[in-house]
Amino acid sequence: MVLTRLIPLWIAIVSGVAILVSAFIRPMESWGENFTDTFNVIAAIASVLGAGSLLKANLAKVSRRDAGWGFALVVLGTFLITLVVGLGKIGVHPSHDFPQADFGGKQESADTPFGWIYEFAMVPLTSTMFALLAFYVASAAFRAFRAKNLEASLLLGTAFVILLGRTFAGVVLTGWLPDWASGLRLENLSVYVMQVFNTAGNRAIIIGIALGVAATSLRILLGVDRSWLGGGER
């Protein structure tokens, strides 16, 4: 109980409050910045655990001959190959500035194996996955954006104004409006919407989130919420 609950609780509260107080004390204002480095290093070390989990899950699939175990083999193979060529900087030439440093070269260009994998496997795969969104946006527009009530209609109407106002279609549709009514042209209307309604809505959301973050942090720092440690109520 002491080792698994009390000490972690103390660690969290002491370190959190110390960093909170440090924000107000001049010589220590950089503590928070150093934490970012500390965190990144811990996360990089902890990636060993992630690798372990990935390997374990896929090896289990292969050894059990689960459905699709061949794909688990692909995961294992691509993972290990990329890891070995990347960590070993295999096929990487030295950098121009320090030809003497054997591991000083960059592996960004496609003439290194790691760079090749990045350019011809990772980039097309991830950016095509990202591009699928255009299709999902279309199907969501057809299916989900229905003027069911006033609230939904407002959402729809605004999306309309922005969609049209941000292409040449807006100019064609409302460009004929005379100068004194130029405020009603779609491209100008979309700017008003952004500057007035969107600004107000976003401000409220941002302020609300700030309070939510403050309360969540305080729940942790005051020891009110311990469920992140596992089991608040028992």
Binding site: G50, F71, V74, T78, F79, L80, I81, T82, G86, M122
Partner: peptide, 14 residues
């Protein structure tokens, strides 16, 4: 999918 998982997991570790 299998390729992108394997490659990208290793990529970020590297």
């Amino acid at each position: 999918e299998a390729t992108v998982v394997g490659v990208s997991a290793a990529y970020w570790m590297v």
